[in-house]
C-alpha cells in the first residue's frame, strides 16, 4: 500500500484516498507553439524505472493537488511537496541523490 503525506493537511493518506494525476512539472504549450512542443506537452512522458516525480490529488480529503517523489520500482517515497512550484525542493532532490547517486529526471538532477 502506497502512503503519501498530504503537504496541506499533514495526514498520512493511503492511495485509496488519493487520485494519481500523472507526471509532475509539465510545461503547457498552447495554440501558438510549434508542433514538436505541443506533441511533447501532450504525449511525451517520462517512464522511469526508479525515482519519478508525480502529481497526486488528495481527492477524498482536502481536495488539493500536490507533488510526490517516489520510486516506481521500490515504492520508496522521498517526499511530497505543494503543487505551487516549478521544481522539486532542494531537500527532496538531495534525499534522492543520497540514495540514487547520479539520479536525473528531465531538467532536474
Amino acid at each position: 500500500m502506497l502512503i503519501l503525506e498530504c503537504p496541506y493537511c499533514g495526514v498520512q493518506a493511503d492511495e485509496t484516498e488519493l487520485h494519481a494525476g500523472g507526471e509532475a512539472h509539465l510545461k503547457r504549450f498552447g495554440p501558438d507553439s510549434s508542433e514538436e512542443d505541443f506533441e511533447g506537452y501532450l504525449f511525451v512522458r517520462e517512464n522511469p524505472k526508479g525515482v519519478h516525480l508525480e502529481r497526486w490529488r488528495h481527492s477524498a480529503g482536502c481536495g488539493k493537488w500536490f507533488h510526490a517523489a517516489r520510486c516506481t520500482m521500490t515504492l520508496e517515497v522521498f517526499g511530497t511537496y505543494p503543487a505551487q512550484t516549478l521544481a522539486p525542493p532542494k531537500y527532496i532532490v538531495e534525499r534522492i541523490k543520497d540514495k540514487r547517486p547520479g539520479w536525473s529526471w528531465r531538467n532536474f538532477s
Binding site: C9, V11, Q12, A13, D14, T16, E17, A60, G61, C62
Partner: peptide
C-alpha cells in the same frame, strides 16, 4: 476508513476528511 483511529493518534477534537 484508511485512518489510524487509536485514541492516541486520533484524539477528541480531531477531524478528518476521508473515504
Amino acid at each position: 476508513c484508511p485512518v489510524d483511529l487509536h485514541k492516541d493518534s486520533f484524539a477528541i477534537g480531531d477531524f478528518r476528511r476521508t473515504r
